[in-house]
């Protein structure tokens, strides 16, 4: 066999004119005039994109804090009775994303790692047994007033059954201010109320004051500002000019 034979054999095989014309018509039809990919490919790409977005958004939402809860409980320490405090970052599914101790005593919540992804309401239920007479303060730190209201409403349903519970809310800015001046969220809320009556009162002074002394400044009954002393102490009722702002994301 020589080159001529090879060329002759295969050169006889040509694409028919009709085949080429029909193919070009087919291509124009399938691509809608070369404007877009066939529907099945589009749907596949769109579906894949949707799945990616849903995964990213869903996965992102689960790990993204939507609001925070500051928990404060009295705790025994070498210097007497102190307040143990934790900040729980919570996602939009009410699951704890992170738990940080904001005080020296963290004995009550010793295993903070296991708290992750637990519903905060279950945690609170564990802390608030029916027999407890110890006060527990819960401050909602949220950027969304409606979200604060929802969480406080959740808490309010418990206060009737659990007399030790006290709740309120702060903005994230207020929460940061509380931290910067060394006041717990709970005490900072009281400070904001007292400050409206005594503008010269400093956070440092409030820090050194007991609840009893603050009560005297307010000229109110202790039950108004101390948790767990009967009645519901939650949300706006507790502090009068209740500050309801939000957790800025």
């Amino acid at each position: 066999m020589n080159e001529q034979q090879w060329n002759g054999a295969f050169s006889a095989i040509r694409a028919e004119a009709s085949l080429k014309e029909e193919t070009l018509a087919y291509l124009a039809r399938r691509t809608h005039g070369y404007r877009r990919a066939p529907v099945r490919r589009q749907l596949g790409a769109a579906l894949a994109a949707c799945l990616v977005v849903v995964s990213l958004v869903g996965g992102g939402l689960f790990f993204t804090p939507a609001y925070a809860l500051s928990l404060e409980l009295p705790a025994e320490s070498a210097s007497g009775t102190d307040t143990a405090a934790w900040e729980l970052e919570v996602n939009c599914f009410h699951r704890i994303v992170s738990c940080t101790s904001t005080s020296e005593d963290s004995a009550v919540l010793s295993d903070t790692a296991s708290l992750r992804f637990q519903d905060w309401r279950e945690l609170l239920q564990t802390l608030l047994t029916e027999d407890t007479a110890e006060p527990v303060s819960v401050t909602v730190i949220s950027g969304d007033p409606d979200q604060s209201a929802d969480v406080l409403e959740d808490l309010q349903t418990w206060t009737a059954q659990r007399p030790g519970l006290h709740c309120g809310s702060l903005t994230s800015q207020e929460a940061q201010e509380a931290q910067s001046v060394g006041l717990s969220c709970w005490k900072y809320q009281i400070y904001l109320k007292v400050k409206s009556l005594y503008p010269n009162l400093t956070p440092e002074a409030v820090k050194e004051m007991t609840m009893q002394e603050l009560q005297e400044l307010l000229g109110q009954d202790t039950e108004e500002i101390l948790p767990g002393n009967g009645g519901a102490n939650c949300g706006q009722a507790s502090y009068g000019n209740h500050h309801r702002h939000g957790w800025e994301s």
Binding site: L19, T23, Y26, L27, T31, Y34, R41
Partner: peptide, 10 residues
Amino acid sequence: FQTVFLKYVL
């Protein structure tokens, strides 16, 4: 034939 050229276009 048509499949191959469609793949090319896409």
